[in-house]
Structures are given as structure tokens and as C-alpha cells.
Design a protein around this nucleic acid. Structure first.
Length: 805
RNA sequence: GGGCUCGUGGUUUAGUGGCUAUGACGUCUCCCUUACACGGAGAAGGUCGCCAGUUCGAUUCUGGCCGGGCCCACCA
């Protein structure tokens, strides 16, 4: 592959495409399945959802994990860095229905899945290309798709195993239901939404007396099973134990006392329904209350609601309120704002329905999960409390069944007589029970020979919580398979700690009693310029593809490296210029350096003072950047590098060494070679440290000069710099800093006089301590040249003083 | 209501128990010097949210308050 000529300007459009092809055809990022010499570093890459395009948040967080992957690779690890796609679930279903003009529910599931796989095979390469364009260094041959056979098999196998371990159960129980999507959902899929509502004060008759309760959901009157008051509430003590008549429906319910009834809320008296909210379930269980269901799964009233049957919930509410009013049973209506749980996908307020669902049993393991969370190394550390917080608040076992058509089927049949569960044989997976016969001829329990197939599919998180296996199993049977686990790193964004991170942790604990990974790095979000969340509906999204086109992928990555791990970063387009400038500057400084390095030979040279100065500072840079990369603080590494490169290297060192390179005769013998040595070392190490963040431009420069010297095919598989302690030289740094200070005074002098920097000065007197004079004297030739001053004299003074004429 | 997090020149950001508080963008002045005008040199601009405490000394540590963000809880 041809590197760009050093005489040309750097063109990222040409360069980025070129190196991407080069890396791919050379398998630069290939995980070696068989090599056991190198230590394995395994990453549990997040699989993005294929249905959408890559958005800026992706570019942001995937860049950040890529910095670490590249760093580890240069450190000598055999990096396992797969790239899967998540094509299981609603987004894919919608996409395929739209593009193929079909209806999932009107097709056989396997047929629809087949169509999905075909469609995705067409779409996926273009989709993945966006990720490749950002410079991701995944081994793209380690690919999985969460809906393909491989993943369905692993997912179903997990289900079967957990069932056999007694960690899953199927039960008719109150569960969270979305009337819009018409499926059960999990606690994690809930979202808060503040809605306008009203407390309706409604009269219940207790004998001849009126007891007034307050409710926001009068449409559930038919479901009322009891009234509750607080045992301490003097107003209502006399009613406890008596029966009240439910208005409009006229059934009798008991009045009970329970501390969960708040005296200061509404009227202090509350009705308990099947099921208005979580407390209703608790009361239902605690007091063995009747089950009175008055709403249907699609959000309408049922038979129990009598004349209100078939009305939608909202309509029923209005009609019931109207009827209460006309009958004088509604004494008051207080408008309130309250927060209700809605389904995060569709925004519909959820209902609690009694339905038969599959659950993963885990509420009894909260403590284990919490401890497991503490054992993970969190970067940044404060993100752990989000998991902790979530675990503490868990109230439901994990409902993993969904009443949808598209997804991973449960490999399960039920005896049509006694409901006995029959599982598919593990070897036969993946299966779709709706399309094959039950493997058992007769029910073991009752002898019946009729079975019905489970039609439900699994929660997508039941599959994506298995990513360590989905990826790892791809190399099963190779030498390095076992070294993958536990994986070294889970990188992801903070919004799915309670989803993906938690669920993966759960599965790993349940299956293997170990953590899935050692470290987790949590990235923040890319926000819009005003610091708000980007969303398509708000129209404030920024397309990373456009930014790459305009400014290059390196520039976009440079931007992504500008925020601390875990921090959100508002995107401002002008910030793109910083990266672009950095790239240009790197190119130009390298061009200049390489121009003077053509005849350089590695050898022992007596080093000039300013060479010792730059090399000493370089060693410190290497140390700090290594430390910061080790603790995932790539932004700090970027900042340190930028300061060194711009300030120390370009603005000062290159200016200082320039004269020795152009006019070696003016200097002592070997001064030029000493400069070449320092230049070579410094530039090479700058490039290497920049390589994880700016993979393209560093490769271009590396190939232009250093690749053949180091005999490496790519900078990205070259060795990460190691600081040479013997080059750390405090005296040289002190002396060099003084030289820089003197240069700065000269520059100020010229600037004040509106002189150009290369205007000549006749004389300079440097007043300083005697000791300092001896330290800086060795660099006198450099100083004269860079200041364009003919003669330098010294004087004695406690403080540094520079007199010019 | 609980937890976490942030509050630094006009904007943005780094950072630390103490030397003149970091850089970028913007502003102003100057300089086309054989790597780079997508550059270089210089300048102006900050009571480091407010109040107390610990300390010889706090922007940095502790507590309280004010303000922003996120997560969780509350849903009768």
C-alpha cells in the first residue's frame, strides 16, 4: 500500500478509505484463535440494532471503546473484539414488514425469521460499513446476529438450562402488561410519565353512612375487592370490619385496616382493585382478596363491567364519572398531576394483568447480584451505584415471555390436558415448537397424547444478555476459547446499565456462578449543542456520517476522546475543527521531520542539551499516557499528548533543532545527528500514543517512514512505547525550560516591536544565577539560532533577566 | 422523597491541600520566518456557585444551601 507523498497535503478522504481496505485485507485486527503466546484481552462489544442507522451517540461510545481496544493491542494483547448486530425484536420486525410489505403475524414465524435473515443479509453490510468508517478495529469475522440460528440455539439452550436448574417458572400471576403492544413487559421497560389526572371523591355506603374514598381510577370500580383505611385513622376506625357497597355495581366489599393506606392522601380511604397498582397486588396476596378482573388485554372493559363492557378504559372512566355525578355519588373532583408508569417503547400507561408468563426467578438473589456488582471494576467508579440502586428497587422476577410473533421462540410444549411442560431436546435446538411435533408421544404425568406449542417469544434481553456466549461460541473448539472468560471488558453506555449490563450479569451468575467480565467501562451520551438529548422526533440529531464526510473519521474520534469516560458531551460542530487541526499539524510536523530523517542512522550519539530536554519530557509523557490509558482515561492521555506535541515539540523543539538540521556546519560535529535521534524518537512515540485515537493519519505517517524501520505491517500492531528511565534528566529539563523561557522573552520583545520573528537582533544579555548559566551554556548555539541573535553575553542576577538590543 | 453527578474567564474544559489556576473557541495587536496562515508570536479576560467548618493555608477536604443533569422510588 502506497503512503501519501510527503510533499502532498494530507487528504483524509483518500487516506481513510485506503487504510481501511489495507487493514481488512491484511487481517490487522484478527483475533488469533490458536496463538497462546500472547495474553488474550476479550471485549464484550455491544451489538447495535440493525434497523436504524448509526447515530452520533454510537460514534461517540464505540470510538471510546475502540481507543481501549487499540491501546491493548499495541500493548501486545491478542484482542478478542467481535462485532455482532442485534436484529431480534420489534425494530427489526417493523423494518422488515415495511421494506418487504408483509405482516409478521400473517406468516409462519420461521418463514418470517427467514425473511428477516435474508433482508438483514442485504442491509447489514452497509450498516456495518458505518462502524468500519469510524475506524473501529473489531475483528469483523467474529460476527453474530441475535436472530440467527447460532444465537437462537444459545438463547434456547440457556432457557432450557435455567429451567432445569429450577430458576425459571411459568405462572399465572399479576404481571406488567402493555395494552397497546398487547404483551407482558418487564420492570426495566417501564418509564415515568407525568400525566394530568383527578382524585375522584366517591361515596360508598356503609349501612346508612357514607364513606368517601378518593381514586384516580374510577373505571376500576367493578374490580373493587376491598376498602382500606389506616389503622391509626380516627375518622374511619368505626368502619373497620364492616362492609361497604360499591357504587354503580352494588357488590359488597370489606373495609380493612392497613398501614399502607396513607391518611394524608386523598380522603385517607382507598379502594383496592384487581389490579390498580402494585399495592393492590400486595393487598390481594396478604388478605386473600377476590380476583375481580374488569379489563381486557387490549385495554377495554369486560363482562364484569356490565353496561360499560367494550368501552375503552378512557371512555369507561368518563362515563362512570358522569353516572356517579348524576346519581350524586361523586362529591368532589380534585385535579392532580401524577406520575404513572408507561411502556418505554410506546408511552402507553401500563396495566397489571393476571396472565400466564415465564419468569426468571431472581428476586431471592438480590444480594448476590449486588455483591457481584461490587466485584466488577467500574470505570468510572460512580456508575456502580446505578446498578446497586436498581437491584435494591427490584420488585418483580424477570418476566421473559412476550406475546409477540417475532423473536426467539420458547422451545416448549404443554400437555393440553394437565398443562405439564415438555422441553425440546437440547441437541435439536434451535426449534420453533409451533412448527413441529412435541418430542414426547405421551404426557408423563397424565398419559395424554395431545400437546400445544408455546406461541410466545422471548424478551430480546433474554438473548442479548448472552453476548459473552454469543460471541465466544464463535471460536468454540479453538485453543483460545477458554481464555475468553471471564471477559476482560464490557463497554457500554450508561442508559442500559439496568437492561443489558444487569441482565448479562444475571445470566452469568445463574449459569456459571461467576461474573461475565472483570471490567466495565461506561460511556456517556452525545448531546445536541444545547446539552439536550438527541432524538429523531425533536429533529436535533446529528449524523456522524456527515461529520466524517466533512471532517474525517479521525477528527470525529478526536472529538469523542475529548470527554471523560462516562461524561455526556454536547456536540458543537466547531469542535470538529480541533481534530482537523490536530491532524493537519501532525501531518505537517511529520513531513518536516521525515524530510530530515532520510539519512539518519540509529547509533550512539552524544546528545545535545535540548535533545536531552525533549527526550526527558517524552519519557514522562509516555508514562502518564500509559497510566491514563490503563485506567480508561483516554481523554487525559489525549490532553497530555496534545500539550506535549503542540507546545513542547512543535512550538519549541522543532524551531530549536531546525538550524542544526539545515546548517550542520554552524554546529559542533554530531549535533545534527543528535537532533535526528531525538526527532526520530519523539515523533515515532507521539504517533504511537496518538494511534488509538487517530488511527488513520498515524498509519499514513507511520507507513511513510517508520513501518520499514520497525518491520511492522501497521502502527496498530507495533509496540506501545515504554518509558526509558535513563533518559529522564531533571537538570536537562530545568536548563531546557530556561532556554524556552529566554526564547519566549525574545518573542515577546519582537512582538512588542512588531518585528517578524526571524528578524535579526544584534545582542542579547542573559542575566541569571551562575549555576544556571553553566547549565544553559551548552545550548548556546541553538539559542542563538532560534532567536536570530548574533551575540549572547551573560551577567549575574538572582532572577532571570533578558536584555535585548 | 432517596441515590449519583456537575457548577472554574463571554462559551467550553483540565486540574491540584500551598509557587503566577490549564488548554481550546471567541476578542484585540502583530508576524506570509525554507513543516504548517487549518500557521506562528503576544495581550486582555476568572472573588474556581453561595455560606460555614477543618487547616498556618482551600478552587481542591467536611457539612449546609442554591442551581443544572441523570437514575430510582412515589402512582390508591
Amino acid at each position: 500500500m502506497e503512503a501519501q507523498k510527503e510533499s502532498q497535503n494530507y487528504d483524509p478522504k483518500v487516506s481513510e478509505k485506503k487504510w481501511q481496505v489495507y487493514w481488512e485485507s491484511n487481517h490487522t485486527y484478527r483475533f488469533d484463535r490458536e496463538d497462546t503466546e500472547k495474553e488474550v484481552y476479550s471485549i464484550d462489544t455491544p451489538p447495535p440494532t440493525v434497523s436504524g442507522k448509526m447515530h452520533l451517540g454510537h460514534a461517540f461510545s464505540y470510538s471510546q471503546m475502540d481507543f481501549i481496544a487499540r491501546y491493548k493491542r499495541m500493548k501486545g494483547y491478542n484482542v478478542f473484539y467481535p462485532f455482532g448486530t442485534d436484529d431480534n425484536g420489534l425494530p427489526t420486525e417493523r423494518l422488515v414488514e415495511k421494506t418487504k410489505n408483509v405482516k409478521s403475524t400473517r406468516m409462519q414465524r420461521s418463514e418470517f425469521i427467514k425473511l428477516c435473515l435474508e433482508t438483514l443479509d442485504v442491509i447489514r453490510p452497509g450498516f456495518i460499513q458505518d462502524w468500519k468508517n469510524t475506524g473501529m478495529s473489531c475483528d469483523f469475522t467474529l460476527a453474530y446476529s441475535t436472530i440467527n440460528d447460532h444465537c437462537r440455539r444459545i438463547s434456547q439452550k440457556s432457557f432450557v438450562e435455567l429451567y432445569k436448574k429450577g430458576l425459571e417458572y411459568r405462572k399465572e400471576a399479576p404481571s406488567i402488561w402493555c395494552p397497546e403492544c398487547q404483551t407482558a413487559i418487564a420492570q426495566v421497560e417501564l418509564e415515568d410519565k407525568e400525566l394530568d389526572s383527578a382524585f375522584n371523591h366517591i361515596i360508598f355506603m356503609v349501612g346508612q353512612e357514607k364513606l368517601i374514598i378518593a381514586t384516580t381510577r374510577p373505571e376500576l370500580l367493578a374490580s373493587c375487592t376491598a376498602l382500606f383505611v389506616n389503622p391509626e385513622d380516627d375518622r374511619y376506625k368505626k368502619y373497620v370490619g364492616k362492609e361497604a357497597v360499591v357504587p354503580l355495581f352494588n357488590h359488597k366489599v370489606k373495609i380493612l385496616a392497613d398501614a399502607r393506606a396513607a391518611m394524608d392522601k386523598g380522603t385517607g380511604a382507598v379502594m383496592c382493585c384487581t389490579f390498580g397498582d402494585q399495592t393492590d397486588i400486595e393487598w390481594y396476596k396478604a388478605y386473600n382478596l377476590a380476583l375481580r378482573i374488569s379489563i381486557t388485554k387490549d385495554g377495554k372493559m369486560n363482562d364484569l363491567a356490565g353496561q360499560y363492557k367494550d368501552l375503552k378504559l378512557k371512555e369507561a372512566r368518563e362515563k362512570i364519572i358522569g353516572d356517579l355525578k348524576t346519581q350524586g355519588l361523586l362529591v368532589d373532583q380534585k385535579p392532580i398531576k401524577h406520575v404513572v408508569n408507561v411502556h418505554e417503547r410506546c408511552g402507553t400507561p401500563i396495566e397489571i394483568m393476571n396472565t400466564k408468563q415465564w419468569f426468571v426467578k431472581y428476586l431471592h438473589l438480590k444480594e448476590e447480584f449486588s455483591n457481584a456488582g461490587s466485584e466488577l471494576h467500574w470505570y468510572p467508579s460512580h456508575m456502580r451505584s446505578r446498578l446497586e440502586n436498581w437491584i435494591n428497587g427490584l420488585q418483580w422476577d424477570w418476566c421473559i415471555s412476550r406475546q409477540r410473533h417475532f423473536g426467539v421462540p420458547f422451545p416448549v410444549w404443554y400437555c393440553s390436558k394437565c398443562d405439564e411442560i415438555v422441553l425440546a431436546d437440547t441437541d435439536s435446538l434451535p426449534v420453533d415448537p409451533t412448527e413441529m411435533k412435541c418430542p414426547e408421544a405421551k404426557c408423563k404425568k397424565c398419559g395424554n397424547s395431545e400437546f400445544t406449542a408455546e406461541k410466545d417469544v422471548m424478551d430480546t434481553w433474554a438473548t442479548s444478555s448472552l453476548t459473552p456466549e454469543l460471541a465466544g461460541e464463535l471460536i468454540k473448539g479453538t485453543k483460545n476459547y477458554d481464555s475468553l472468560y471471564p471477559m476482560d471488558l464490557r463497554p457500554q453506555a450508561h442508559d442500559i446499565i439496568t437492561f443489558w449490563l444487569f441482565n448479562t450479569l444475571v445470566k452469568s451468575r445463574l449459569h456459571h456462578k461467576r461474573n461475565p467480565w472483570k471490567n466495565v467501562m461506561i460511556s456517556g451520551w452525545a448531546l445536541d449543542p444545547s446539552g439536550k438529548k438527541m432524538s429523531k422526533s425533536k429533529g436535533n440529531t446529528i449524523e456522524p456520517q456527515v461529520m466524517i464526510e466533512k471532517y474525517s473519521a479521525d477528527a470525529l474520534r478526536y472529538w469523542a476522546a475529548g470527554s471523560k469516560l462516562g461524561d455526556d458531551l454536547p456536540f458543537k460542530e466547531k469542535d470538529m475543527m480541533n481534530g482537523k487541526k490536530m491532524i493537519t499539524k501532525l501531518w505537517n510536523a511529520s513531513r518536516f521531520s521525515i524530510m530530515h530523517l532520510g539519512d539518519f542512522k540509529e547509533d550512539e550519539y552524544e546528545l545535545e542539551l535540548m535533545d536531552k530536554w525533549v527526550l526527558s519530557k517524552l519519557q514522562k509523557l509516555i508514562k502518564i499516557c500509559t497510566e491514563t490509558f490503563d485506567s480508561y482515561e483516554y481523554s487525559r492521555a489525549r490532553q497530555e499528548l496534545e500539550m506535549f506535541f503542540w507546545n513542547v515539540f512543535c512550538d519549541n523543539y522543532l524551531e530549536i533543532v531546525k538550524d542544526r538540521l539545515y546548517n550542520p556546519d554552524k554546529h559542533r560535529e554530531g549535533a545534527r545527528e543528535s537532533g535526528q535521534y531525538a526527532l526520530h524518537e519523539t515523533l515515532l512515540n507521539i504517533l504511537k500514543i496518538a494511534a488509538p485515537v487517530l488511527p488513520y493519519v498515524t498509519e499514513e505517517i507511520y507507513q511513510l517512514h517508520f513501518a520499514k524501520i520497525e518491520s511492522k505491517k501497521s502502527i496498530h500492531v507495533s509496540a506501545w512505547p515504554v518509558a526509558n528511565e535513563t533518559l529522564i534528566n531533571e537538570d536537562a529539563e530545568h536548563a531546557g525550560d530556561m532556554i524556552v523561557e529566554i526564547i519566549s522573552r525574545v518573542r515577546k520583545f519582537k512582538s512588542d516591536k512588531s518585528l517578524s520573528l526571524n528578524s535579526e537582533l544584534a545582542q542579547m544579555v542573559v542575566e541569571c544565577k551562575d549555576r544556571d548559566r553553566r547549565l544553559i551554556e551548552p545550548a548556546l548555539m541553538d539559542l542563538k539560532a532560534v532567536c536570530k541573535v548574533k551575540d549572547i553575553e551573560f551577567g549575574a542576577a538572582e532572577e532571570l533577566n533578558v536584555i535585548l538590543s
